[in-house]
Deep mutational scan, measured.
Amino acid sequence: MTEYKLVVVGAGGVGKSALTIQLIQNHFVDEYDPTIEDSYRKQVVIDGETCLLDILDTAGQEEYSAMRDQYMRTGEGFLCVFAINNTKSFEDIHHYREQIKRVKDSEDVPMVLVGNKCDLPSRTVDTKQAQDLARSYGIPFIETSAKTRQGVDDAFYTLVREIRKHKEKMSKDGKKKKKKSKTKCVIM
């Protein structure tokens, strides 16, 4: 069974824990209790493949930012979460993405942009803004509501699919490099 290491990042209060708990335990946590770091595991079937999701729910508070490099190193894919009623959390996505790329030393890291709290009427981040940002990053965008469960499975499952595509691409690139290195030079 394939294991996928997913990391949920975003500013404090955007609903990272609520999304994760909704996926794992099928219930909505409405009281806000700032996370330092929590880890969850769940076995699911995605596109006919049974897999184990190892999900790291991270601290959004700035005082825990020193811990970010460590979990970013171990993560295979990242859910970059903002709240649709919090423009600052949307603007912060850029910083999370840049930090992930720096730590992973790669421009090509599996990510999904997630606009959470889409059940709320007080939207300050337009869907088109988020779609445009995701398009500019070359990553999928999904709106979710941890409260109603809308888009929750889709967000995590899409990230797994992005990781699969990335692994497939990397193995193809690896095979191309191996083929090239088999060419021999004969000096007579």
Rank of each mutant, 00 (worst) to 15 (best):
T35A: 01
V160S: 11
I24T: 10
V109C: 09
N116Q: 13
R41A: 04
Y4D: 04
Q131F: 13
V8Y: 04
V29S: 07
I36M: 05
L23K: 03
I24W: 10
L113Y: 09
Y32M: 01
E98V: 02
D33E: 03
Y32W: 13
D33L: 14
L53R: 01
Q70Y: 00
D33C: 07
V112R: 03
L133M: 12
K117E: 11
M67G: 04
C185L: 03
E63C: 02
D105S: 11
Q131A: 09
L159K: 04
D69F: 00
N116K: 03
V160I: 11
K184E: 13
Q43M: 03
V14Y: 13
R135H: 10
K104S: 14
G48N: 11
E107N: 12
V160K: 13
L53F: 08
I163F: 07
V29A: 06
K5V: 04
G48D: 09
Y64D: 07
L56C: 01
V8K: 14
G13F: 12
T35L: 00
T58I: 05
E3F: 04
F78V: 06
V7S: 11
A155V: 08
E62F: 09
V186A: 11
D38S: 01
R97S: 09
L19D: 14
V8A: 07
E31N: 04
V114A: 06
D173T: 09
T50A: 14
E49W: 05
K177A: 08
A130L: 10
R164Y: 07
L52K: 08
D38T: 01
K169W: 07
A155K: 04
N26F: 15
V81P: 09
H27D: 04
D153I: 06
R102V: 09
S181A: 10
G174Y: 15
K184P: 08
R73V: 11
V160E: 08
F28S: 00
T58L: 01
F82L: 08
L120E: 13
T124D: 13
G13T: 09
H27F: 11
H166G: 12
H94R: 15
N26L: 13
M188N: 14
T20A: 10
Y71T: 15
T20G: 13
V9G: 05
L113C: 12
F90I: 06
K182L: 06
Q129Y: 13
P34I: 12
K175M: 12
Q70F: 03
E98A: 06
S17Q: 04
V9L: 15
D126Y: 09
I36L: 15
D153M: 05
A155L: 05
L120W: 12
A59L: 15
G12W: 04
Y4P: 15
T127C: 09
K42H: 04
V44S: 07
K176E: 13
A66M: 05
T127E: 09
D108A: 12
C185V: 05
Q131M: 11
S106E: 13
I139D: 01
A83E: 15
Q43L: 01
L159I: 08
Y40P: 00
P34V: 06
E91D: 10
G48P: 13
K16V: 00
E76W: 06
A11D: 14
S65W: 03
K117P: 05
N26K: 02
A155M: 06
G174V: 08
C80I: 13
G60C: 07
E62W: 10
V44I: 08
P121R: 11
L53N: 07
N86M: 02
K128T: 08
S65T: 12
T87A: 12
Y71A: 15
M67Y: 03
L19M: 12
E168V: 12
V9R: 01
K167A: 10
T124I: 09
Y157R: 10
V44Y: 02
K104C: 15
H27Q: 11
L133C: 08
N26E: 03
M72Q: 02
G48F: 05
V29W: 06
V114T: 02
Y71S: 09
K180A: 08
K178L: 05
T124M: 09
A18I: 05
R123N: 13
L159M: 10
K5D: 14
D69S: 05
E162A: 09
A66N: 08
D54V: 01
E3H: 05
G10P: 02
G151W: 04
L6E: 02
P110A: 04
S122D: 13
D54W: 01
I24P: 00
A59D: 00
M111C: 08
A83Q: 15
K165I: 13
Q70G: 01
T2W: 04
L23W: 13
D154V: 07
R123Q: 13
D153G: 06
V81Q: 12
M111A: 02
N116M: 15
E3I: 02
I46L: 11
H95Q: 15
K101F: 08
V45Q: 14
E63V: 06
E91V: 02
R41P: 10
T74N: 10
N116H: 14
I46W: 07
E76T: 13
D92H: 10
S106Y: 12
G13Q: 12
S122W: 10
P34M: 03
D30N: 10
K180V: 04
E98F: 03
R135G: 13
T87I: 15
A130S: 08
Y4K: 05
R97E: 07
D119F: 06
E98I: 00
D30E: 10
V125C: 10
K104W: 15
P110T: 07
F78G: 01
F141G: 06
Y157L: 10
K5R: 14
H27Y: 14
D126C: 10
Q43P: 02
S39D: 03
C80D: 03
K16L: 00
Y32T: 01
K167G: 10
F28V: 00
D119Y: 09
A59Q: 14
F28M: 01
H166Y: 08
Q70A: 00
L133W: 07
L159P: 15
F82G: 10
A11L: 11
G12D: 06
Y4I: 09
I46Q: 15
L113K: 03
R73F: 11
P34E: 01
L19I: 10
I142G: 06
D153T: 06
D33P: 01
G10E: 05
G60S: 02
E31K: 00
D105A: 08
